[in-house]
C-alpha cells in the first residue's frame, strides 16, 4: 500500500515544483490533441452536416464505415498510418514517422470519425426543421449553415469534447507513429506507460493526475455550456 500513498504524495510535490520535463510533455500533449481536434472539426462538422441533410446512394455504407472508425482501436490506426508513412510506404518520402506531425495526423484519423458521427446524429434529428425555417425566411445556403451551427452549438461542443477526450487519452496510436522519443514525441500517455515499465510510480501518478485534471477542466467547460443553454 505504501508505495501508492508515497507515490501520490511525491506526485503532488512534482506537480507543485513545476518539473520542467513533466510540463513540457503536458504541453506537447495539449498541442498535439488540440490541433488534431481543431482540424478534425473543420473537416468533421461540414461532412457530418452534409451526411445528415442529404440523401445519396452509398450513404448507408459510408455511415457504417464511419461508425466502425468511431470505435477503431488506436493501435490499429497507428499501425496503418505507420505503414503508410514508412520509408518504403506510399508517403514514405515525407519521412514523417516518429514526428509530431505524424502524431497529429493519426489523432485526426481517430477524432474526425467521432465528430462526423456525432454531428450526423445531431443534424439528422434537428436539422430539417431548422433548415425549413431558414428557407422560408429567405436565407441563403451559407446563412442557413450558420443558423444550424448556432442552434446546434451545444451538441457540437459535446462532439468536440468527446473527440478531444479520445485524442488526449489514447496511447496506442501516438506510441506507434510517434515512438515516445524523449524531448521530441513524448506525450502524457506514452510517458505514463514508460514510467510504469521503469518502476517510477510517483512520476507516473503525477502525470496521471494532470491528465485527469485536464479532463475534469474540459468536462466542466462542457457542462457549463450545456447548463447555460438550458437555464440562462
Amino acid at each position: 500500500m505504501d508505495y501508492i500513498l508515497d507515490g501520490i504524495k511525491k506526485a503532488f510535490e512534482l506537480i507543485a515544483s513545476f518539473d520542467s520535463e513533466i510540463y513540457g510533455i503536458v504541453g506537447l500533449s495539449l498541442f498535439v490533441s488540440l490541433l488534431a481536434v481543431f482540424i478534425s472539426l473543420l473537416i468533421g462538422i461540414p461532412l457530418g452536416m452534409g451526411l445528415g441533410t442529404r440523401n445519396f446512394r452509398g450513404k448507408g455504407i459510408i455511415l457504417r464505415i464511419i461508425y466502425t472508425f468511431m470505435s477503431m482501436p488506436p493501435v490499429i490506426a497507428g499501425l496503418f498510418l505507420f505503414l503508410i508513412l514508412m520509408r518504403r510506404g506510399p508517403l514514405g518520402r515525407y519521412q514523417l514517422n516518429y514526428t509530431v506531425t505524424a502524431m497529429i495526423i493519426v489523432q485526426i484519423c481517430l477524432v474526425t470519425p467521432i465528430i462526423i458521427g456525432l454531428t450526423y446524429n445531431l443534424v439528422r434529428d434537428k436539422a430539417p426543421e431548422i433548415l425549413r425555417l431558414g428557407v422560408t425566411l429567405g436565407g441563403s445556403r451559407w446563412s442557413n449553415f450558420l443558423l444550424l451551427l448556432h442552434d446546434l452549438r451545444r451538441g457540437l461542443a459535446a462532439a468536440v469534447v468527446s473527440g478531444f477526450g479520445r485524442a488526449i487519452s489514447e496511447v496506442g496510436a501516438v506510441m506507434i507513429v510517434g515512438g515516445n522519443i524523449t524531448g521530441k514525441t513524448r506525450v502524457m500517455t506514452t510517458y505514463i506507460a514508460e514510467l510504469k515499465s521503469m518502476g517510477d510510480y510517483s512520476r507516473a501518478i503525477a502525470v496521471g493526475i494532470i491528465l485527469l485534471l485536464i479532463s475534469f477542466i474540459v468536462n466542466t467547460f462542457l457542462y457549463q455550456v450545456q447548463q447555460r443553454g438550458e437555464t440562462e
Binding site: I130, R132, L133, V135, T136, L137, G138, H150, G229
Partner: peptide, 17 residues
C-alpha cells in the same frame, strides 16, 4: 420570390435565442 414570401406553420421553429 423566396426573399419576398414566408410561411408560418402550426408549430413554428424558434431560433435558440
Amino acid at each position: 420570390p423566396m426573399k419576398d414570401m414566408t410561411l408560418l406553420s402550426q408549430k413554428p421553429y424558434l431560433i435558440r435565442t
